[in-house]
Amino acid sequence: MRYLLLALLALSHSLAAQPWRVVGDEQFAPYSYVTPESDTPHGLDVELVDAVLREAKVPYEIRLYPWERVKRMLDRGEVQMAFQFAGTPQRQEQYELVGPLRSGSTVFMTTAKTAIKDWQALEDFSPYVIGQVRGYSYEENFDRADLARDTSAQNPRQLVSMLLAGRIDIIVGDRVQLQYFVREQRAQEQVRVLPRPLIQMPRFVAFAKGDIERARQFSEALVRLRNAGKLDEIQQRWAQ
């Protein structure tokens, strides 16, 4: 019996020592991205997650992949944690969400091609084709609305390119991110953001449903860093 107990304790210690496999979106600049020269993760959210995991004192490794693969890896149990999930009811049913890690403003961006100046109801978008990234969740009512959509974009950079090429009328996404890719193409004068945002969207990290212990460890470390002002310091550095 004593040997069995020792074996179980050794197994528990071994599992605890195994690094968490953490994954995020490789095409979500400036929040998470890889460069053509290296697959090393970069971005604001990468730094936030890195800081929290170091505070939690757990071994980990962070890798970035296409978003659809990120979700599949978490769903199949191939990784222990993933980011950056929108806090929609659908995601809350699927995963143990912890956070928010940060919040971002989800907006509509268009060009001079369209007559729309602002919107009051989702029906105002009925005359237009709205581009969105395949597999992304935006806001519950918008996601369910009966609107003409183009979901062929695989990432936000491609979505901005489609708008600039005139293939779609309007795109939806994170304000900072869309503007980042517009500046990348030196197209600031060609686009405009509608004044009213769709939502102020909190972004969460996700664990498999039922993985309460890892979710607790991350949550407690996140609260400690937020209370100490460390997360604000990281965000302010990226805002400069």
Rank of each mutant, 00 (worst) to 15 (best):
M1V: 13
M1P: 09
L5V: 14
A7L: 15
A10K: 07
L11R: 03
S14Q: 10
L15K: 07
Q18I: 04
W20D: 00
R21M: 01
V22S: 05
G24T: 08
Q27N: 11
F28V: 04
Y31E: 04
Y31P: 02
V34Y: 01
T35D: 04
P36N: 03
D39W: 00
T40D: 12
P41H: 01
D45M: 11
V46L: 03
V49F: 08
A51K: 12
L53P: 11
K57V: 04
P59G: 00
Y60L: 02
E61F: 00
I62M: 04
I62L: 14
R63W: 06
L64N: 09
Y65R: 05
W67E: 05
W67P: 05
V70F: 15
L74N: 05
R76C: 02
E78I: 12
V79Q: 06
M81D: 14
G87H: 02
P89Q: 01
P89G: 07
R91W: 03
L97I: 13
G99Q: 04
L101Y: 00
G104T: 12
F108H: 07
A112N: 14
K113V: 10
T114N: 05
I116M: 07
W119G: 06
L122M: 06
E123Q: 11
S126K: 01
P127I: 06
V129G: 01
G131F: 15
R134E: 15
G135D: 06
S137C: 03
R144A: 11
A145S: 15
A145P: 01
D146V: 15
L147Y: 09
A153M: 07
Q154H: 04
P156Q: 11
L159M: 12
S161I: 09
A165E: 04
I168G: 04
D169K: 00
D169Y: 08
V172R: 00
V176Q: 13
V176T: 14
V182A: 02
E184G: 02
Q185N: 08
Q185G: 07
Q185V: 06
Q190S: 14
R192C: 12
P195Y: 09
R196G: 00
R196M: 05
L198Q: 05
Q200S: 12
R203C: 04
R203G: 07
E213C: 08
E213P: 15
R216P: 03
E220M: 05
A221V: 10
A221L: 11
R224L: 11
L225V: 05
L225M: 09
N227Y: 15
E233Y: 03
E233P: 01
Q235D: 09
A239S: 15
A239P: 14
A239K: 13
